[in-house]
């Protein structure tokens, strides 16, 4: 049996909630007993509510946050077991949710891309050539190497972040809403690029996104998070065609679409007061129905 590139087992993360005097009064269960794995070359999509713990999971994989409990294995090796930071960076890279804050404002784009390349042992003209290649891959002109982040539009910055992450050719790329700042045509090109790189280098992806239409088309399997827990998981076509959990149905029903055909496949959700309900209201309604199965 082949070892998964990423395996997450029983992961938990709680954050303390403090009162005005700095005393801990409560806890936010940001991640609640989450388990899943990603095979070599596979795209695993993580969807779910805002605040449901997606970025926290990503940050724990990157070692930027310490789990309260649970295990994270990369190629079978436990991250908690003291893997050297440099070694880990070669295996796992991340593109953050927020393009603006992940680039150093005082470095030119070229200087930012140079850092990981030098760390890989490249030198001299090879670096410049590779920088040109990377910019080309993400469809930016070579002279962008001389620009500073503030001179770039939101989508241009995001492409630089992707170029920097693939520079070291990692095994797993964690993408936290990598294309939400991109227009659809650039997004399609970036996803094309990710798919090609995935095939060429057998890269695996953890793809976090609110764009469910994109997720259906890009991810092989998906997991749906609600309040820190995975409420549904499966092959993405199966989940989209037959969502089992009410929260998943609500999510798919809320996707804004551009054609009438898509409107027709959105699940029908019971309206509350004539409107699409909040997740809480819908789940409360279902709970009530389960308790009183006879009442209509």
């Amino acid at each position: 049996m082949t070892v998964p590139v990423l395996e997450i087992i029983g992961l938990n993360k709680g954050f303390p909630v403090k009162n005005g005097f700095g005393r801990t009064v409560d806890e936010v269960r940001a991640v609640d007993d989450v388990s899943f794995s990603i095979a070599k070359g596979e795209v695993y999509g993580l969807a779910g509510e805002s605040g449901s713990g997606k970025s926290t999971i990503a940050r724990m994989i990157m070692g930027l946050e310490r789990p309260t409990s649970g295990d994270i294995l990369i190629e079978g090796r436990n991250l908690g077991g003291g893997m050297a930071a440099a070694e880990k960076r070669k295996l796992v890279q991340m593109v953050f949710q927020n393009p603006g804050s992940s680039l150093n404002p005082r470095r030119t784009i070229g200087q930012s891309l140079r850092v990981p390349l030098e760390a890989m042992g490249l030198a001299g003209r090879k670096i410049d050539a590779r920088i040109g290649e990377l910019l080309d891959m993400v469809q930016l002109p070579a002279n962008f190497a001389e620009r500073f982040p503030h001179e770039l539009s939101g989508g241009q910055k995001q492409r630089v972040a992707i170029a920097r992450a693939i520079a070291v050719q990692p095994r797993l790329l964690v993408l936290d809403e990598p294309t939400s700042a991109l227009d659809v045509s650039v997004q399609a090109k970036v996803i094309d690029l990710l798919v090609d790189l995935g095939r060429e280098l057998e890269l695996s992806y953890l793809f976090i996104s609110h764009d469910l239409s994109l997720m259906r088309n890009f991810a092989d399997r998906i997991g749906v998070l609600y309040r820190g827990r995975i409420v549904e998981t499966g092959r993405s076509d199966a989940v989209f065609e037959n969502p089992a959990h009410d929260y998943t149905r609500l999510l798919i029903a809320s996707v804004p679409v551009v054609t009438a055909e898509e409107e027709a496949v959105r699940p029908k959700i019971p309206l509350i007061d004539g409107e699409i309900p909040t997740a809480e209201a819908l789940l409360a309604l279902r709970e009530q129905e389960r308790r009183n199965p006879t009442s209509e």
Binding site: V184, D192, V195, R199, D211, L212, R216, F240, E262, R266
Partner: peptide, 15 residues
């Protein structure tokens, strides 16, 4: 270029 909720979009240069 908008991905469709109905699926069927092929990404990558192969598609």
């Amino acid at each position: 270029a908008v991905p469709r909720l109905t699926g069927g979009m092929r990404f990558g240069s192969a598609g």
